[in-house]
Simulated scan of single mutants.
Amino acid sequence: MTGMAQTYDAADGAGRQGNHSDHPGEQGAEDPVRLLEIREAPLSVDEVFAAVGDRAAGGTALFVGTVRNHDGGTDVARLGYSSHPSAEAELRRVAEKVVAEHPVRALAAVHRIGDLEVGDLAVVVAVSCPHRAEAFDACRKLIDDLKHEVPIWKHQTFSDGTEEWVGV
């Protein structure tokens, strides 16, 4: 059901997938998946935000994941991300699932791999929908499923010299 708008019955609040809406602008976009990429180059919030621009969207939610300076009470010096060759295909599967479950007008997700420093952007995702609550829900689903289902692994190096792999 990619590209289908979800309409709501005001009487009972039940959400339903469908082609019909009271307003043509709420019908699903032709191809709402606008940008999906796993890359070594630095990420741009502006690029991802621009990718989900849609005149029929009343809400856009954006999430930016950054490299923090600690984890589990230990100082992080740096980290590296690596991915399986299937990662982009899995990212597409996750994106299409979000589109099928939410009235997404546009969706974008970019994850960085390679060596990153504290403060660098690791992941940027955004979703635009007809309404803000839908955008928040779809964006949360997108980032949560990306982190749980896309084979991207984090190798943390701590300031005390110890290391750990996360997500393996």
Rank of each mutant, 00 (worst) to 15 (best):
P42C: 07
C139H: 12
A87Y: 04
L35G: 03
I143W: 07
K141G: 00
F158T: 08
L107G: 07
H148P: 01
S82V: 10
R112M: 13
N19P: 13
R39T: 15
V45C: 02
N69C: 04
L116Q: 09
S44M: 11
L79W: 01
G25E: 15
D115E: 13
R140Y: 01
L43T: 00
T66A: 00
G3W: 13
L35I: 06
V168E: 11
G65H: 01
A109I: 12
V52N: 04
N19E: 15
K141A: 09
V67M: 05
V94F: 02
A133W: 01
G161C: 10
L116S: 08
F49A: 12
L62F: 01
L79Q: 00
S128E: 08
R93W: 09
D144E: 13
D22F: 11
M1C: 02
R140M: 01
K147C: 02
E149F: 06
P85M: 07
L121T: 11
A89R: 14
L62K: 01
E96D: 13
A10T: 14
R105K: 14
P85A: 07
D160T: 03
D115W: 03
E88T: 07
V33G: 04
V98M: 04
I143P: 06
S159D: 11
F136D: 05
D31H: 15
V125F: 01
F136H: 08
L36M: 12
G25W: 13
S86C: 09
G114E: 08
V52C: 01
L43M: 05
H20D: 15
A51Q: 06
P24A: 12
C139D: 15
C129E: 11
L43Q: 00
G119S: 12
H20E: 15
P103M: 13
S128F: 05
V64N: 02
V94N: 08
R39Y: 09
E90G: 09
L62M: 06
M1L: 03
E101H: 10
A56G: 12
V118R: 03
E149C: 07
P130E: 08
G13M: 13
V33C: 01
I113G: 04
D120P: 05
R55S: 11
V94D: 06
L62G: 00
D54P: 06
R112H: 12
P42D: 11
S83C: 10
S86G: 10
G15V: 15
T157S: 10
D160K: 02
I143E: 09
H70W: 03
H70G: 08
V118T: 08
V125Y: 04
V123A: 11
D12L: 07
P151K: 03
T2E: 12
A57N: 10
R140I: 01
D137W: 02
Q6L: 14
L43I: 00
G65R: 04
P151Y: 04
P24F: 12
A51F: 07
V94G: 04
H102W: 11
D71L: 02
F158M: 06
L43C: 02
A50N: 08
K141P: 00
I152L: 03
F158N: 04
L142E: 03
G15W: 11
